[in-house]
Amino acid sequence: MSLALRRWQRAPGSLTARLKALGECFEVLTLRQRVAPLLAEEKRVLGPGRYLVREVILKVDGEALVWARSVAPARSLAGPWRALAGLGTRPLGQLLFDDARVARSPLRPHRLGRGGPGHRRIARDWLQATGAPWPAGVAHGRSSVFERRGARLRVFEAFAPGLACRGAAKLTSNPGWK
């Protein structure tokens, strides 16, 4: 994995804000948002129950750079995470980082090898949404859990290699941007 992708894995704060800083046009392509079964890692972190799952691709200047999946308890849609229900194509990052009552766990890096269920899901969605195969044999990403009034929300983000190129260019042109 490149140094630039490692920086993205560890970058604190809002991924949305960092992506917006990379170009002129930031957009969220919503792939699906529905109550759905959890993946094994999500069950381990969040426990049993019914969950709202939202999967998106984040683009900068038309280039797909991130595949993301957020998971929140369905019951919290009538409470702390009610804004999720109507999020649509708005970025989740604004909801999470504009609210001082939201706490975030430490970032956890991930490496999803080709052929595993997570990598297959990302590759399938990427191909359907962009018309191109997932551009790497391994999906590098990160996850964290946000909490608001006792309700937890897990976010996983997988970084396409193009993000490293854009991020490296940004770091070169602005050394203060980390």
Rank of each mutant, 00 (worst) to 15 (best):
S2I: 00
S2V: 04
L3C: 01
L3F: 09
L3K: 02
L3H: 06
L5W: 00
R6M: 00
R6W: 08
Q9W: 06
Q9V: 06
R10L: 06
A11E: 13
P12N: 07
G13R: 00
S14Y: 07
S14T: 02
L15H: 02
T16V: 03
K20Q: 14
K20L: 04
K20C: 10
A21S: 15
L22I: 07
L22G: 11
L22N: 06
G23W: 06
E24K: 08
C25H: 15
F26A: 00
F26T: 03
E27K: 07
V28H: 03
T30R: 15
R32T: 06
R34V: 04
V35T: 14
V35N: 10
V35W: 05
A36T: 09
P37F: 14
P37C: 08
P37E: 15
A40G: 02
A40P: 12
E42L: 10
E42K: 08
K43A: 08
G47A: 09
G47Y: 13
P48I: 01
R50S: 13
L52A: 02
V53I: 15
R54P: 10
E55F: 07
V56Q: 03
K59T: 11
K59S: 11
V60R: 00
E63M: 11
A68L: 09
S70C: 11
S70T: 10
A72F: 08
R75K: 14
A78M: 11
A78Q: 15
W81N: 00
R82D: 11
A83G: 05
A83R: 10
L84I: 14
L87W: 11
G88Q: 14
G88L: 05
G88W: 12
T89S: 06
L92A: 04
G93M: 03
Q94F: 04
L96T: 01
F97M: 00
D98H: 11
D98F: 04
D99H: 11
A100Q: 14
R101T: 14
A103R: 15
R104L: 04
P106Y: 05
R108Y: 07
R111K: 10
L112H: 15
L112E: 13
G113N: 11
R114V: 03
P117Q: 07
G118P: 06
H119G: 01
R120H: 08
I122Y: 02
A123G: 02
A123Q: 05
R124A: 12
W126V: 00
L127T: 15
Q128C: 09
A129R: 06
T130I: 07
G131A: 04
W134D: 00
P135M: 09
G137L: 08
G137M: 09
G137I: 06
V138P: 12
V138W: 13
V138F: 09
V138L: 08
G141F: 10
R142I: 02
E147H: 03
R148L: 04
R149L: 05
A151D: 15
A151P: 05
L153R: 09
E157I: 01
E157F: 00
E157M: 05
A158P: 11
A158C: 12
A160P: 08
L163H: 08
A164V: 03
A164K: 03
A164Y: 14
A164L: 07
C165V: 15
R166M: 05
R166N: 02
R166G: 01
G167Q: 05
G167C: 01
A169P: 13
K170N: 01
L171T: 07
L171P: 01
L171S: 13
T172N: 02
S173W: 14
N174V: 02
G176E: 06
G176I: 02
W177K: 00
